[in-house]
């Protein structure tokens, strides 16, 4: 997992609530057995006017000029701003993979669906929850000023706006530490292998049918 600590970037506004994982990466692209290459089909049904199929060169697609991410000013945006319940629906990790592959590092929204939130953190994509009023202010600022930027500091847990206002956000210390250091969960859990084995032998004596 790639480390993350601090990032200043243009904010791309996706002004919708309940952005679901089917919208983030439609099902026809889930057939891949790889973790990469999903970025070109991120928000496929919104981003292109022609129906998307796996294996088609994006250069040959018909781009939807009205979709916000297709505007030049957001070409280098690494921060996505959205509304309530971002990432709801399916557990597909292809959703954060697509967002990362496209180039996003941070998603800011008033709330996230649980599975998406977890999946993001495990891939080095930082989901930041800010109050709905703050998000609303940010949307207004983004629409008012082309190329509006914010600074995200994970170490100090704040988002600093262009007006130098700092909005603090919460994240588990454990998750923050993993992101800052780019740590792999599995290695960490396996360092507790003895405890897992002790659990198993206790459970096996109490509920033997679980082991038959």
């Amino acid at each position: 997992m790639e480390k993350f600590s601090r990032l200043k970037s243009v904010v791309a506004p996706l002004d919708r609530s309940n952005v679901d994982t089917d919208a983030i990466i439609p099902k026809q692209f889930l057939k891949s057995i790889k973790r990469t290459g999903f970025g070109k089909n991120l928000f496929d049904a919104w981003r292109y006017l022609d129906p998307g199929e796996p294996g088609v060169d994006p250069e040959e697609r018909e781009v939807n000029p009205d979709f916000v991410l297709n505007r030049k000013v957001y070409a280098k945006a690494r921060i996505l701003l959205s509304r309530e319940n971002f990432g709801c629906g399916s557990s597909r990790e292809h959703a954060p993979w697509a967002l990362i592959d496209y180039g996003f590092k941070v998603i800011i929204a008033p709330s996230f669906a649980d599975i998406f939130y977890n999946n993001s953190l495990k891939n080095g994509l930082l989901p930041i929850v800010l109050p709905a009023t703050v998000v609303d202010e940010m949307f207004k600022a983004v629409f008012l000023k082309e190329g509006y930027e914010v600074l995200v500091d994970l170490n100090e847990k704040f988002v600093q706006t262009a007006e130098n206002i700092k909005h603090r956000f919460e994240i588990d210390d454990f998750r923050r530490d993993c992101l800052l250091r780019g740590l792999d969960d599995i290695g960490l859990t396996l360092s507790h292998a003895e405890e897992i084995k002790r659990f198993e032998s206790r459970q096996k004596s109490q509920q033997p049918w679980l082991y038959k």
């Binding site: 557990s91 977890n118 999946n119």
Partner: peptide, 19 residues
């Protein structure tokens, strides 16, 4: 329901990190 990283984590450790 879990994501693919968690599928790998459960495969490797039989455990899931949860709050």
């Amino acid at each position: 329901g879990i994501g693919t990283s968690e599928v790998e984590h459960v495969l490797a450790t039989q455990c899931l990190m949860q709050k």
